[in-house]
Amino acid sequence: MTDFNEFLTQDARLVILRALTEQPDGRLNESLLSQVLDVYAHHRSREWIRQQLRYLADLGSVKITEVGPIMIAAITRLGVDHVERRTELEGVKRPSIGA
């Protein structure tokens, strides 16, 4: 993976975590996450989004539930801590101060 592709992937993972923290219950399905990522110019396939959710789940920053063919992500305390700059997750862009 090129450095720029890695940068884009890390940024997209942060967008996913931020989107989840903005939800009252901390959850979104892959379809809604696809729409959120599109807003931030991360136009990726559903399978790519699923790969990122699995990566984030392996880190412990999200929990994944599959309901039929749909993947639902729920943010964990670790994911919130990253978004709020209390910890750093490898492979996820660090949030800007005050963002």
Rank of each mutant, 00 (worst) to 15 (best):
R86V: 01
L89E: 00
L89V: 01
A73S: 12
I72Y: 05
E66F: 03
E66L: 03
V67A: 09
I70T: 15
H82K: 11
G68T: 10
I72S: 05
I70G: 06
V62Y: 03
P69Q: 14
K63N: 05
V83Y: 07
H82D: 06
V80A: 08
V83S: 02
L78E: 12
V83L: 03
M71P: 04
V67Q: 11
T76F: 09
E90N: 12
E88P: 02
I64Q: 07
D81I: 03
E84I: 06
V67K: 13
R85T: 07
I75C: 00
E84V: 10
K63Y: 01
V80K: 15
E84W: 06
S61L: 02
I75F: 06
I72A: 01
R85K: 11
T65Y: 12
S61M: 00
I64N: 08
R85D: 04
A74R: 15
T87Q: 09
E84Y: 12
T76K: 04
I72E: 08
L89H: 00
T65W: 08
M71N: 01
D81W: 10
A74M: 11
D81M: 07
R85L: 12
E88Y: 08
V80P: 00
R86S: 05
D81S: 08
A73G: 01
E84L: 13
R86K: 14
I75H: 06
A74V: 01
L78D: 09
M71E: 09
L89M: 06
